[in-house]
Write a protein that binds this DNA or RNA. Structure first.
Lengths: 202, 202
DNA sequence: CGGAAACTTGGAGCGACTCCAAGTTTCCGG
DNA sequence: CCGGAAACTTGGAGTCGCTCCAAGTTTCCG
């Protein structure tokens, strides 16, 4: 029963944070306000979330979830890994675009933190999905095998996040086109290299 | 003469910051200590640097400088852009590795900030170099022309920074191998795509 | 020389975050 | 059912980064 209470408090904190971050804005709401709205002491909030950033990271995790879902969808059996990646990205675009309006500059904070903290939280799920995709591709033969799948996934997600980050900074950034292009570049990077030049000694 | 004085103060602040960041450590030295060591009021420090992070960003800029130099070196006329990238990266490795001992966890903060702030400061120079490389490659014909060079550079630098960031987080990360692999993946991503499948409608 | 402009400074103040001792609540064995 | 251990909450004091501002002080220039 103690467990349920904790869970409930946590949920309330997240809910109030989401509400306040949306309307007065991230920078305009203090920890104290969130705590007060959730009916706990400010100090208590830090028992649940180590920082204000952690709070928003949790909230924004859902954004990556849609992308992860698209990536984890059963791949069309007759299409390449690269095509699957491109399609998943394209399909997740609307949700991403919508999240921008809701989360706004929050997302940027999340990206910044997530990009450097070795992919924890919502991002780790995205990394996992990309990793699975790469493994499957390697097994299937259209993804290079000379680099570990998890590292490939790391590179891929960094690339995606860079484009996302830029878009968040600059609304005029042509997200659709960029994502398309990013998918193409990543896809070609993952592809098993032609056995021509640019081979380094084993 | 006012100009010289300002420059001098700025230099002193940076010098003291470097010294203190090195020995007591970034988190263990306060703005007040730096200001005091440089013989100015804490408030004055903020006339020169907008934040503590900006201070360390300035310091770490030099690290990327060596990488930029390698990239901007005259390319061997008979080697591909991809090979040039790989070589530059490999050549910059020792300096990067050394910087880790000096700057330690600072570098991570810089990366985090730089990765999201649209490449200002030292990183913008790196981006510029990559951009030039891509333009040259496009002109030469071994870099894809269907994506703008500056965006390609963005993707490439994000990828490199991701690997760097991971290495900074985890000392056991095999940096040399990773960088080599990253260069290969990026190189293949930049390469002009084969006219086989995975073509999207114009 | 005298005033305008640039720069510095201390102080007040805010918000994130930490530490801790003193509650309060929940749990569990006897 | 009771009493104490353990878990959790809370207020308060304190630090640090950072902002704002009014009151200097210095530099420049007509």
């Amino acid at each position: 029963m103690r467990e349920r209470k904790k869970h409930e408090t946590r949920r309330r904190l997240l809910a109030e944070a989401r509400r306040l971050f949306a309307s007065p804005g991230y920078f305009a709401t203090s920890i104290e306000q969130i705590a007060q709205a959730a009916d706990v002491a400010p100090a208590t909030l830090f028992n649940y979330f180590p920082s204000k950033d952690a709070l928003v990271a949790e909230l924004a995790g859902e954004v990556f979830e849609t992308l992860r879902e698209q990536l984890d969808r059963a791949p069309a059996p007759d299409s390449s890994t690269q095509a699957h990646l491109g399609r998943a990205l394209a399909d997740a675009l609307p949700a991403i675009r919508e999240a921008r309006d809701v989360l706004g500059p929050l997302l940027l904070r999340v990206l910044r933190r997530a990009a450097s903290d070795g992919a924890r939280g919502g991002l780790s799920r995205l990394h996992g999905a990309l990793s699975r995709l790469c493994v499957a591709g390697q097994r299937r033969g259209d993804v290079r095998g000379d680099v570990e799948a998890s590292f490939l996934a790391e590179l891929a997600s960094a690339t995606l996040l860079a484009a996302l980050g830029h878009w968040l900074n600059d609304p005029r950034y042509p997200l659709d086109a960029r994502m398309c292009q990013a998918a193409a570049v990543i896809g070609d990077g993952l592809r098993v290299p032609m056995p021509t030049h640019t081979r380094r000694d084993p």
